[in-house]
Every structure is written in structure tokens, then in C-alpha cells.
């Protein structure tokens, strides 16, 4: 019995040593690949822009996304937000001074939405980054290694997938309040990586049976090399599409988190605007409807942009469609 445990521990130890080596090689390989990527970047970037430009959907989506990115970076400089409350200016109609009117505390609604863009975008990007990074890593490991590794990762991802998200978050909200976007993004991605990991896994599994991967082992090309220079480029467009769509999902989810009260209330976050408008009974006040409509439209616009862009990417990158 004892020997068996020692054996298992040794095996685990060996596994980690191997894993360490693989990661080390992976990092070196990835660094080299990145170098080459940067060297080719300008050329590829221009080709990419050309491709986006020729695809109407992708182009429209790109315009919307660029607009949001621009607002997130420069919006606060162009439209400074004044958080002074004044009940005298409550629910003003749209005018030259207040383009979308004011909210229940007399703040300029348009400025609030612009101000909130940065938070919304950073949550979205962080979440997408974590989701895609972790999901792709797990998917590749489990798809390429197969066997026990695959089963264990499969089990973990199934557990995460079957966790009831809302009840757990409700319970969590009694104990913790998230104060920064980074943590919020981490929590959001905990629930979204397994789906991506699964689809990456199935892609890797089918790619690994393809002739051009099989022949690599006959030609003496190493495993790390196969993963980073043969497999990864083949799923890159898929990853890019998923990045965009998990950004889209993160925005909706983060609004939900604020409504639940798990995340700290940032008054200019689009979700928060909706929540506070609802709490102050804006549904009943015709003049206040804009306080609901404006942030919803902003969310929808971003979603449409994300959907258009990712669909367009799919069309532009799919080699089967590109072949002709």
C-alpha cells in the first residue's frame, strides 16, 4: 500500500517536472513565435484590415467596437462627468445642455454613460482575457494529451458547468463584495471557461488526427513545436471570435452581478444606471424612461457590434470559405 502511494507521488512529481519542462519550452517557443508574429505584424495587420474591410458585417462591427474603445479611452477627457447631485434637475428632458436629459439625482445621463464605458469595457476585456486564456490552455492540454489528463480536466469543467451560477453568487454576495474590476472579471470567467475549453478540446482532437499533424511525428517535429506552431495557428481565428463574444457575455453578466449586489456599485456603470433608475421607480415616470432606455441601447449596440464583428471574422477566416 505504502509503496503504491510513494509510486503515485513519484509519478505526480515526475508529471510536474515534465509539465515544468514543457511549459518552459512552450514559453520559449511562444516567445519566438511572438517575435516572428511581430515581425510580420504590419503586413498581416494590413491584410487583416483588407479582409475586414471587404466583409460588410465585420466592417460594421469593427466600426462599432472601435467607437466603444475610443469612448473608453478618451471619453472621460472629452465629456467630463460631474457627479454633483441636484434634485432640482431631476429627470430633465433632453436638451442642448443635457443631450439625454438627467437621471433621478440630476446628473447628466449622457456624461454618465460615456464615463461608464471605461469600466464596462475593462471588465469585458479582463473577463474575455481570463476566459479565453484559461479555456484555451485547458482545451489544448486536454485535447492533445488525451487519456487521464483529458478525463480529469473534463470532470473539472463539467463540475464548473453544472454549478448553478445565480444561487451561488447570491450566497457569495452575503459574504463578499467585489471592489475592483479585476476580481469581478475573475469571478465571471470562472463560469465561462469550461464551455470554451470543451470546444477547443474537440477542435484540437480533430486537428490532431489530420494528416499534417500526423506527418509531423514522422518528420521528427517535437510535441511542443506541434502545439505552438502547427495547432495553435489553426484555432487562432476561433479564439479571436471567442474573445469578442466572451466580452459581449461579460457585459451582460456584469450588469447582473451589480443587480444582485455582489459587485460594488459604480454609479456610472450601465448596469448601475438601470438598477438605480429601477429602484427610484423610473418605470412609472414617463420622463425617466430614458434612464432605462439609454444604457440598454448602449449594451445592445455593443452586443450588435460584437456579434457582427465575430460573425464577420468567422467568414473572413474560415479556411473552407476562404479557399474559393
Amino acid at each position: 500500500m505504502k509503496e503504491r502511494f510513494v509510486g503515485i507521488f513519484k509519478a505526480i512529481g515526475r508529471f510536474f517536472v515534465k509539465l515544468g519542462n514543457a511549459i518552459k519550452r512552450g514559453v520559449v517557443c511562444a516567445a519566438r513565435a511572438t517575435g516572428r508574429f511581430l515581425a510580420n505584424f504590419w503586413r498581416s495587420f494590413r491584410a487583416f484590415c483588407g479582409m475586414i474591410y471587404s466583409n460588410k458585417k465585420a466592417f460594421a462591427g469593427a466600426i462599432i467596437l472601435i467607437l466603444f474603445a475610443f469612448l473608453a479611452i478618451f471619453g472621460r477627457l472629452i465629456f467630463p462627468y460631474d457627479d454633483k447631485t441636484s434634485f432640482a434637475d431631476m429627470y430633465l428632458k433632453p436638451s442642448g445642455e443635457h443631450w439625454l436629459g438627467t437621471d433621478g439625482m440630476g446628473r447628466d445621463l449622457f456624461d454618465m454613460i460615456i464615463h461608464g464605458t471605461q469600466d464596462v469595457m475593462s471588465i469585458a476585456i479582463f473577463t474575455a482575457f481570463f476566459t479565453v486564456g484559461f479555456g484555451v490552455l485547458m482545451g489544448i492540454i486536454s485535447g492533445y494529451a488525451g487519456g487521464w489528463t483529458d478525463r480529469i480536466i473534463g470532470l473539472i469543467s463539467n463540475v464548473f458547468m453544472s454549478l448553478p451560477q445565480f444561487p451561488i453568487l447570491l450566497i457569495l454576495s452575503m459574504f463578499i463584495t467585489i471592489r475592483d474590476n479585476f476580481t469581478l472579471a475573475l469571478i465571471l470567467s470562472v463560469f465561462s471557461w469550461p464551455g470554451l475549453a470543451r470546444s477547443v478540446r474537440s477542435q484540437i482532437m480533430s486537428l490532431k488526427e489530420r494528416d499534417f499533424i500526423q506527418i509531423c511525428s514522422v518528420m521528427g517535429v517535437g510535441r511542443v513545436h506541434i502545439i505552438f506552431t502547427e495547432l495553435l495557428p489553426n484555432i487562432m481565428s476561433f479564439v479571436a471570435i471567442n474573445f469578442i463574444s466572451s466580452m459581449k457575455n461579460a457585459i451582460t453578466a456584469s450588469v447582473g452581478m451589480m443587480t444582485l449586489g455582489i459587485a460594488l456599485f459604480e454609479p456610472t456603470n450601465w448596469g448601475a444606471i438601470i438598477v438605480s433608475a429601477r429602484n427610484s421607480g423610473a418605470f412609472a415616470i414617463p420622463a425617466a424612461r430614458l434612464c432605462i432606455i439609454a444604457p440598454v441601447v448602449a449594451i445592445m449596440l455593443f452586443q450588435i457590434g460584437a456579434i457582427l464583428f465575430s460573425n464577420g471574422l468567422d467568414e473572413a477566416f474560415n479556411p473552407r470559405l476562404r479557399k474559393n
Partner: peptide
């Protein structure tokens, strides 16, 4: 099927030579 569809001919040939 035997050539990686996202790689140019140059790099499809480069990889195995370099690996060996």
C-alpha cells in the same frame, strides 16, 4: 490535408528541416 492550411509553403518546409 498533408499541409497545414494556415501556413505558407516556406514555413511548412522550414519546420521539419529545423527540427532535424
Amino acid at each position: 490535408a498533408a499541409l497545414n492550411p494556415v501556413k505558407k509553403i516556406y514555413s511548412s518546409l522550414y519546420t521539419p528541416i529545423k527540427a532535424n
